[in-house]
Design a binder for these strands. Structure first.
Length: 835
RNA sequence: GCCGAAGUGGUGGAACUGGUAGACGCGCUGGCUUCAGGAGCCAGUGGGCGCAAGCUCGUGGGGGUUCGAGUCCCCCCUUCGGCACCA
């Protein structure tokens, strides 16, 4: 090391360098994106954060840094990169915090945002701050409200009184996606069922398309799989069971061929059930309706009325936890009977809470012989169990000790009349066809996905833009009147009424009906935060435009998003809603594409010292402290080095020093680099291998191995305390730039460059230099490695064999003539000797 | 229960389409340098046996395919994530 490297001036002072370059970037507009004229647009997006009072979480920074590296790399490859940032600042999270500290979120949020912006700037992200947005800005939520109106126009937004998930703690409705194991995902309170008037989006209309498109998306497999599970497609059949007065028909061998007119002595009441096993219809020995099924009222007999009413009252009050935890079967008989359309047998109709009103038709045909839940129920209440499917070593009389649910090929039908002997797969189709001929069934596809409830009885969100008028009914707010501004409300504490705090602000909600001019009343619910985030990526290029939600020309140029990186916790919430909204706008002719994110990668999560970070554990990493101590460049690079990006990893305080040491050595190498003389060919070979490796790894998000490759090169560059050459050092600075942008800029400038390193291209590698001069081949005898040989990469089997036999250490294992030789060029030679 | 991901040194993690397991970093050991160091540099570092050359075992467990298996196939165990009375 030369003495000059020790002078104060030339110390690697990360803080000073980072301050200098952040100011420089701001002054020069280095991170500005020319959205109108920029060529080769590349839109790289990070999931915008919720600006919490605690400030930026290391997880946020992990996500953003990964995205930033990708963006900077694309820019070095000549793209005009757009890397915007915004804040998802509406919602219960912010509101609850505001309530806790007793400050209106309208005051609180801007403060949090200022803090976030400060922290984000310190991290050295390549963000064009001119396009920053916040979902709480009336200029943003004006268009969120506009979006609601677009869905309404297309019949995709509707209001209904429905049983919804009610969080008694947050005092609001939750979307299904926000209920985890029966508790509120936010506060953990047991979620209750409530009947409220709510606004819904008809996302179920898009279930099929949302599912099918997944096959063509370049997304993390785990995310696609989560969406598939969530959408939950089931193929099956709807089967009609006709209601009958059992007493009248008891004993009469009524079968399906009985004409409809003969059977309709009583008003025919069809009970439609959904099943994925239409092949088992002959084994349906009773029906079960969900307790809240609308037909229950009508079919219940006077004798059973009391017990049915009791049961319905009991299950209605039950919270979801109780329902899910105790899988014990309960239910009551309605007194009514239906006719099994396959065999004409009268079968009793029960109600039970194991049947869910929200799925299928809210009614099932129970086949206890072949469904575990039905079996359990039948056992509990002594209902008949009939075998209609038999396995390979069974027949129609083999007793059932439990439900036989196997439907794989040898399983075939028994006790099923003309369908006996058919394998299950064939029987399904045949029975559905037969039922369809008699108008008693049809093939249907069912989805688990529910419509999206967007109403929230809270304060901190965009008011849903409708007005209720006694004369005109529901009237959408005219688009020209948007935004419907959220008023400043002193008391925004929600209560148990199920009515939003906005309903207390009479001056706000009393308005003229836009249609008739009479007295009207605003909708007082606000919309779900997930609606805000379902379209923000469309807004960024047009942020600041007040005339449109998203400019068609800019949208065409920048969207869909080229690369989206975010957490998998949004696999079924944000990422599904965004796809839905994009599809709707596409169908409305407003977007030329119907998927918003061409490529999505779920990043991993960071734990610390093997444990999840949490305030109570006291192991939360505060980015500010680490940036203070090690510099943003070292912190960024360490975050990317601690594990595979898509898996996350373990943050260990000690680990960061290794990365900082690497940057220190880079610094010294660059300052010492010689201009005179020639570069070392062996070092250049390693350099070109490194360029190749880093160039390939960054697009794959294999950041940890890219950094490892650069460290490896550093070890070669400085081996034996040699003084590196400029030609050996300069390209390395370019490789490091996406990870450690400040120090790279500084060194780049010291190398005499005038423009930002990010506009000076990416080093290319010379394949010939990157290739090895000599390769080390493993030599095995009978599959055991006995030594290595150095040969030219293109050495033939004969060359390699000769070289191997020349090595005594190897040759001594070759005790006879080789029976076989396996040769993998440049890699391995295996001499097989028979003994 | 269903779906997805994953089990590799003391530790975080590498390993291309089956081809020298443990790259790179942390830690540790020894040495050099230093007034000093939570600094820098050099060397070593999977286990066992051996003075050594070397031998041998080794990627959660058990089988298998192969000249050759961390990687492929079958069975099992464990961890993490998602869904879950979804008919």
């Amino acid at each position: 090391m030369t003495e000059s490297a020790h002078t104060a001036l030339d110390l690697y002072d990360a803080a000073a360098i980072e301050r200098k370059w952040q100011a420089r970037w701001e002054r020069d507009g280095t991170n500005h994106t020319d959205v109108d004229a920029g060529v080769r647009p590349y839109y790289t997006l990070m999931m915008f954060p919720y600006p919490s009072a605690e400030g930026l979480h290391v997880g946020n920074l992990f996500a953003f840094t990964g995205n930033d590296i990708h963006g900077r790399y694309q820019r070095q490859h000549g793209h005009t990169v757009f890397e915007p940032m915004g804040y998802d600042a509406f919602g219960i999270h912010s509101e609850n915090y505001a309530l806790k500290v007793g400050v209106n979120p309208m005051e609180l949020i801007p403060r949090n945002i200022d803090n976030f912006r400060r922290q984000l700037k310190r991290a050295g992200l390549m963000i064009d701050w001119r396009y920053e947005l916040s979902t709480t800005d009336p200029r943003y939520y004006k268009w969120t409200q506009w979006l609601i109106l677009q869905l309404y126009k297309r019949g995709l937004a509707y209001k209904k009184r429905a049983a919804v998930n009610w969080c008694p703690n947050d005092k609001t409705v939750l979307a299904n996606e926000q209920v985890i194991n029966g508790v509120c995902e936010r506060c953990g309170a047991k979620v209750e069922q409530r009947l409220l008037e709510q606004w819904f989006f008809r996302i179920t209309d898009y279930a099929g398309r949302l599912l099918e498109n997944l096959d063509h998306l370049d997304w993390s497999e785990s995310t696609k799989s989560a969406q598939r599970n969530w959408i939950g497609r089931s193929e099956g059949a709807e089967i009609v069971f006709r209601l009958h007065d059992y007493l009248e028909f008891a004993g009469a061998a009524t079968v399906m061929r009985t004409s409809t007119s003969e059977m309709s002595a009583l008003p025919p009441t069809d009970i439609r059930v959904f099943t994925t096993r239409p092949d088992t219809v002959f084994g349906a020995t009773y029906l079960v309706l969900a307790p809240e099924h609308p037909l229950v009222e009508r079919i219940t007999t006077d004798e059973e009325r009391t017990s049915v009413d009791d049961y319905r009252a009991r299950t209605a009050r039950q919270d979801l936890v109780a329902r899910k935890v105790t899988k014990e079967k309960t239910g009551v008989f309605t007194g009514a009977y239906a006719m099994n359309p396959a065999n004409g047998q009268p079968i009793p109709i029960w109600i039970a809470d194991y049947v869910l009103m929200e799925y299928g038709t809210g009614a099932i045909m129970a086949v206890p012989g072949h469904d575990e839940r039905d079996f359990e129920f039948a056992k509990t209440f002594g209902l008949p169990i009939v075998r209609v499917v038999a396995g390979p070593r069974e027949n129609e009389r083999t007793p059932l000790t439990g439900a036989y649910t196997d439907s794989e090929d040898p399983a075939q039908l028994v006790n099923s009349g003309r369908f006996n002997g058919l394998v299950v797969s064939k029987a399904k189709a045949a029975i559905v066809e037969w039922l369809a001929e008699h108008d008693r069934g049809r093939a249907v596809v069912n989805y688990r996905l529910h419509d999206w409830c967007i109403s929230r009885q809270r304060y901190w969100g965009p008011p849903i833009p409708f007005i209720y008028c006694d004369k005109c009914g529901v009237v959408p707010v005219p688009e020209s009147d948007l935004p419907v501004k959220l008023p400043i409300v002193e008391d925004f504490q929600p209560d148990d009424s199920g009515i939003s705090p906005l309903a207390r602000v009479e001056s706000w909600y009393r308005v003229k009906c836009p249609s008739c001019g009479g007295q009207g009343r605003r909708e007082t619910d606000v919309s779900d935060t997930f609606l805000d985030s379902s379209w923000y990526y469309l807004r960024y290029p047009s942020a600041g435009r007040d005339d449109v939600a998203f400019d068609p020309v800019l949208t065409d140029k920048w969207l869909p998003v080229d690369s989206y990186i975010g957490g998998n916790e949004h696999a079924v919430l944000h990422l599904l809603y965004s796809r839905f909204v994009t599809m709707v706008l596409h169908d409305a002719g407003m977007l030329p594409f119907d998927e918003p994110f061409v490529k999505f990668r779920a990043h991993g999560t960071i734990v610390r010292d093997g444990a999840k970070m949490s305030k109570s554990r006291g192991n939360v990493v505060n980015p500010d402290e680490y940036i203070e101590e090690w510099g943003a460049d070292a912190f960024r690079t360490y975050l990317m080095f601690l594990g595979p990006y898509e898996e996350g990893g373990d943050f260990q305080d000690r680990g960061i020093s290794g990365v900082r040491r690497f940057l220190d050595r880079l610094w010294v190498s660059a300052l010492e680099a010689q201009r005179s003389g020639a570069a070392d060919v062996a070092v250049l070979r390693k350099l070109h291998k490194t360029i190749r490796k880093v160039t390939e790894d960054i697009p794959k998000l294999s950041y940890n191995t890219a950094i490892a490759a650069m460290m490896e090169y550093m070890n070669v560059l400085r081996a034996g305390e040699r003084t590196p050459h400029v030609a050996e050092t300069e390209p390395l600075i370019q490789l490091v730039a996406p990870f450690a942008p400040h120090v790279a800029e500084e060194l780049w400038e010291r190398f005499g460059h005038k423009r930002t390193i990010f506009d000076c291209g990416w080093p290319s590698f010379d394949p010939e230099l990157a290739a090895d001069e000599l390769v080390t081949m493993a030599v095995q005898v009978n599959g055991k490695t006995r030594g290595t040989i150095q040969v030219a990469p293109e050495a033939t089997q004969e060359d390699a064999l000769a070289a191997a036999m020349a090595e005594l250490a190897i040759a001594r294992f070759v005790t006879a003539d080789p029976a076989r030789v396996i040769f993998v060029k440049g890699r391995l030679l295996n001499i097989v000797v028979k003994d």
